[in-house]
Design a protein around this nucleic acid. Structure first.
Lengths: 130, 130
DNA sequence: CTGTATCCGATGTGATACTG
DNA sequence: CAGTATCACATCGGATACAG
């Protein structure tokens, strides 16, 4: 939760500085990851790329409502974070393939546990038979 | 990933509609949760409340840089989602206590696995001895 | 095909002042 | 003490046009 990961290994029950300095909080890599995952398209792009590699326009058509601008931005950020690999084939016209890296695939495991938690909660709210 | 959770139980390797309808994506509860967690203060408030209950101004002082407005909004949203319980003591002046619900505590388990993933990645980047 | 540049509206967040 | 109301500003994301 702080820049130096003081509180991260066991995010629970580890003492945090009082007050939590805003600079540290902003710089915390865990916070940053959640900010990325919380933007409009990142999560969906990650899930799609986990199922298969895509070319740019394939992905564009695959996701209804995403703009070229945001697809580019989302993919570039994921590439910058080492979660997605971008491969350019210098054909005419050019073609570019996007694939999840090993790191990207490994991230989906903890993420799917969060997703499972959501499902469990909605099942508690709406019991079987509804 | 869709409103009906079609793809959620095993977020990985479950086919998604092609194209993914933007209405379904917007309505997906998993997507929504990540959007909440990705906002500026939610994650920190969850972690702090997991360690102890807080009164409003205690929390306000505890988090450097948060505004009254955003602390109120964040807590109200968490309460609305059933993650935080708000208890008013009708003293003069009034005092209000915030505590994590059982659901809130249960969420922190999958979240801390995501946090652990971040730590593991940074350890791979910067091996021991640095 | 795979982008980039520009503009604009929507939304998120902070500052300040005020209230029961 | 625990908020609410209002305004101001920054950032996010979509639309459109253009380019290699």
């Amino acid at each position: 939760m702080s820049a130096g990961n003081i509180a991260v290994p066991t995010m629970l029950n580890t003492p945090l500085p009082d007050p939590v300095p805003s600079a540290d909080y902003d710089a915390c890599p865990v916070t940053e990851l959640f900010r990325r995952l919380g933007d409009k398209w990142t999560l969906l792009v990650l899930v799609l790329l986990d199922q298969q590699t895509y070319r740019f326009n394939e992905l564009h058509r695959r996701i209804e409502g995403i703009s070229q601008r945001m697809l580019t931005r989302t993919l570039r950020t994921l590439e910058h974070d080492g979660l997605v690999e971008r491969t350019v084939f210098p054909t005419v016209p050019p073609s570019v393939e996007y694939a999840l890296t090993a790191r990207g695939r490994s991230l989906l495991k903890p993420l799917s546990e969060v997703a499972d938690w959501v499902v469990q909660q909605s099942e508690m709210t709406a019991p079987p038979g509804t």
